[in-house]
Simulated assay, not measured.
Amino acid sequence: MSLPTERNSECAPASRGRCELEDSLEILRNVSVFAGIPLPRLKLYAYLSRKMCFQAGEFLFHQGDSGDRGYIVISGRLQVIRELKEHSVLLHEFKPGDFFGGMALLSDVNRLFSVRAVTSAECLSLDRESFRKLMIQFPEIAFKVLDMMIRRIVNMEEKLLQTQISEGVRG
């Protein structure tokens, strides 16, 4: 399912004098998942990515939605929210340089959380189809994304276990 925000939030062309491709390349070079990829390959990722803008309060996606994009925060702040039956829980806040949504690049899975812009935000995004085409040609990026996702899952499990242990000790 493609969300309206994903269709309508492309940023207006920048008039800063720098080429958009150069900007995207610089952003990718500063993200650990993409750092270390040879420049010619990284240029392909930069070419296939696109900038998206979001207003404060706007959701990039909602928990449970199907998604096919990964994001890198260029500017602004984004909240990661887990929606429960009676309330929502703020899990994390993304800031410039953070990469998220990697699972959607690797597989057709539903989003585990919602992401909402706290301030006006700009992100660089890459879609699954483009990512997979490049991953087939250059598989090293897939291992980096998998490693990052596994580390995040282990970190979440550790926090969950610590919370359960703390509540068990108190209860």
Rank of each mutant, 00 (worst) to 15 (best):
Q55K: 15
V89A: 09
V89K: 12
G64K: 15
G36Y: 06
R82S: 11
M52Q: 13
P38Y: 11
L91A: 06
L44Y: 06
A104I: 02
S88T: 05
A46R: 01
E93Q: 15
G97N: 02
F34H: 00
F94G: 04
D98N: 13
G102P: 09
I74Q: 06
G36I: 00
D68P: 11
L84W: 14
L44T: 12
V73W: 11
G57H: 11
G67P: 09
S49D: 09
Y45S: 00
E83K: 13
A56S: 10
G97M: 02
A46M: 01
L78Y: 07
L90C: 04
R77H: 12
R69L: 12
R77L: 11
F54K: 01
V73L: 07
S32H: 08
G57E: 14
Q63H: 09
R69P: 07
V31A: 12
A56C: 10
A46H: 04
L42Q: 01
H92L: 04
K51S: 09
V73M: 06
Q55M: 15
D65F: 04
L48N: 15
L84H: 15
G76Y: 04
G57M: 11
A104F: 03
R77A: 07
I81Y: 03
H62T: 01
R69S: 13
G101H: 14
F54L: 08
L60E: 04
L105I: 05
L90D: 05
D68T: 12
L84A: 09
F54N: 01
G36K: 00
P38S: 09
K85R: 13
L84G: 09
L90I: 08
F59W: 06
L39Q: 13
G67M: 05
F34T: 00
R82P: 09
Y71S: 14
F94M: 04
V80A: 13
A35W: 04
G36L: 00
R82W: 13
K95C: 12
S66D: 08
I81D: 11
R77N: 11
R69D: 10
K95T: 07
K85E: 12
K51L: 10
L60S: 04
V33A: 09
H92D: 14
L44D: 03
A35N: 13
R77S: 05
